[in-house]
Every structure is written in structure tokens, then in C-alpha cells.
């Protein structure tokens, strides 16, 4: 039988969760070569909204925790097809073309172009899942001090830390803002104008006409179908693996980095006291032995034995 039993209400743990959520932030950048084009991105990730819900089976439900990608800038680089004139038939015959004009190209090589678009706040994903609660003992916290009283006085006692440990997490794409369609058009314009800007107006007209519709070509290269939201989701989810990366980071954050709360071991049952009659009294420290956590529908219960 435990010597000590401590209950924390679900409401209090919710507030602790909000603190943990608001302290989460990381940035990440990566690039990937997807054959016809390259993509590099730089993302800042934060958490918003979401809630936890205690379950009767010793688990905690993590509900609709929003991932905010802000800032999020994505740079696309691609080779657009060569822009050449000529190639038409000079001497047609009943059996085909006997002589064809040589092709002469406007550019030395395939034009490689790059343009960056700002997708900050455009994508909304959310995480849901099931978590357990665990207490972790951190023994090294008091290392280097002569005794537990000094460690406590210096704020470096050994600690028990309560972590929310995700069992499984799902990430869902909730929304891609409608404005993304305009952004993709802007991207394509930027890519094309980047290539053609040195040309005089008449030459730009020829090049764009020869390219058989630059927009459709770039859309083909980038493999953008009718649903831009789906394309963007696949890009980040499958090609760039950003969503999985975020899920891992969130899981590691709650499981390893940010404790919902912590308490020292040995625990100061009675605080230090000053005495006018004699020397000051040191705090009374009690060892925490085999603490255990239980989650019920309404509260979190901590039970432990106390040692000398």
C-alpha cells in the first residue's frame, strides 16, 4: 500500500498541456531532388488549439492539435524545355520530309529556373492520437553536490518528471487555403518571367507561343493536376516527408523534452526553518520509492511509497 496518494484534476493537467503546447517551436529546412524538379523548403512549426481528454483505461486522448507552418517558404527549381525555332519541313515529298530546317535555340542550354513562394499559414494539419502518462527519474540532476540538502538548495535535485508519451499519432491535412491556387499561378509567372526577362517583348511572345503554353508545361513538369490542394499535400506528405517529420518532433517533444510537471527526489516534506533560539533547521527530505501514475476519467493519481 502506498504511503502517499496525490490526485491532480483533468482541468489542471489541461492547463499544463497548454503551457507545453505553447512552448513548442522548431524550424526545419530540407531539399529534395524529384527528377524533373527540385524543391527546398524552410519551415517554422508551432502548435495551436487542441485538447486532452482523460480516458478510463489509463490513457489520454490527444485531440485536434493544430500544426501551424509559419513561416513556410518553398523554392521550386526546374528545367524548362529548350526554346528553339526552325525544324519545319523545307522539302516535303509524298513519302515524308526530304529536308528539314535546322533548329536553333534561344538559350545555350535548358533554362534552369528557380522561384520561391511563401506558403506561410496556407496549410493546416492537425494531430490526434492516444498517449500514456509516465514518470521519468532523472538521476543526474543532483550530480556534483555533496548531499541532497545542498542539491535542493541549489535547485539541482534528482527529479521525477511527468511526460505525456504518445502511443500513436495521426496527422491529417485539414485545409489548404483557396489562395494557394493564385500562389501557384504566381510561381509559374515568376519562373517564366525569370527566364524570359532579358528578352525583348517580341521575343518573349515567340518563346511563350513556341513553348506551347508555358503554364501547362510547368504544370506538367511539377505534375500539378486539377486539385492543387491534393498536389501540395502529396508534395509535403510524400515527397518531402514534412508531415511525418513534424509528427516525430511532436512525439519526441512531449515524450522526452517537455515535462508537464516535475518534483524533486528526495522530496522536501517539511521546508527549512530558521530559528531564533538555535541553528536553522534543514528541510525534512523523504525518498520517493516506486511512484506510479494512474489516469482515470477525471483525474491523474500519483501513488508512491516513502523511504528514509
Amino acid at each position: 500500500m502506498a504511503d502517499l496518494q496525490l490526485a491532480i484534476s483533468e482541468a489542471v493537467v489541461r492547463k499544463l498541456f497548454v503551457t507545453a503546447r505553447d512552448n513548442f517551436a522548431f524550424s526545419h529546412s530540407d531539399s529534395v531532388d524529384l527528377g524533373p524538379f527540385t524543391v527546398s523548403y524552410s519551415a517554422g512549426v508551432k502548435l495551436k488549439n487542441g485538447d486532452i481528454d482523460f480516458q478510463s483505461n489509463n490513457t489520454v486522448l490527444l485531440k485536434e492539435l493544430d500544426i501551424v507552418y509559419d513561416p513556410l517558404s518553398v523554392t521550386f527549381g526546374l528545367d524548362i524545355p529548350r526554346v528553339c525555332v526552325g525544324g519545319f519541313c523545307i522539302i516535303p515529298t509524298p513519302f515524308g520530309c526530304a529536308l528539314r530546317a535546322p533548329r536553333v535555340c534561344f538559350f545555350e542550354d535548358d533554362p534552369d529556373v528557380a522561384a520561391t513562394i511563401n506558403l506561410s499559414g496556407i496549410i493546416t494539419t492537425e494531430i490526434s492520437g492516444t498517449c500514456g502518462m509516465t514518470l521519468r527519474f532523472v538521476p543526474e540532476a543532483g550530480a556534483g553536490t555533496p548531499d541532497p540538502w545542498t542539491a535542493l538548495a541549489n535547485g539541482v535535485s534528482n527529479e521525477w518528471r511527468l511526460h505525456l508519451v504518445p502511443g500513436w499519432l495521426d496527422i491529417d491535412l485539414i485545409d489548404v487555403a483557396d489562395t494557394v491556387g493564385n500562389l501557384i499561378d504566381q510561381l509559374i509567372d515568376a519562373l517564366v518571367d525569370d527566364v524570359l526577362s532579358p528578352l525583348p517583348g517580341w521575343a518573349r511572345g515567340i518563346v511563350k507561343a513556341i513553348l506551347h503554353g508555358v503554364t501547362s508545361i510547368i504544370r506538367t513538369i511539377l505534375d500539378i493536376g486539377d486539385d492543387i490542394g491534393e498536389w501540395l499535400s502529396n508534395l509535403f506528405n510524400v515527397s518531402l516527408d514534412l508531415f511525418s517529420f513534424v509528427v516525430d518532433e511532436v512525439a519526441k517533444y512531449f515524450a522526452d523534452k517537455f515535462a508537464l510537471f516535475a518534483f524533486p527526489d528526495p522530496y522536501p516534506m517539511l521546508p527549512a526553518e530558521t530559528s531564533v533560539l538555535g541553528p536553522p533547521l534543514v528541510p525534512v527530505l523523504i525518498n520517493i520509492v516506486q511512484p506510479a501514475i494512474t489516469v482515470t476519467d477525471t483525474e491523474l493519481v500519483l501513488e508512491t511509497s516513502l523511504g528514509a
Partner: peptide, 14 residues
């Protein structure tokens, strides 16, 4: 005659 930018897919003739 000038070839306009909007004329996509123009096939040059001989």
C-alpha cells in the same frame, strides 16, 4: 507579324 504571347502552341510554317 508579331506572334503574341497568348498564342499558345503556334506551329511555325514554311
Amino acid at each position: 507579324e508579331r506572334l503574341e504571347q497568348s498564342e499558345k502552341g503556334y506551329e511555325p510554317k514554311a
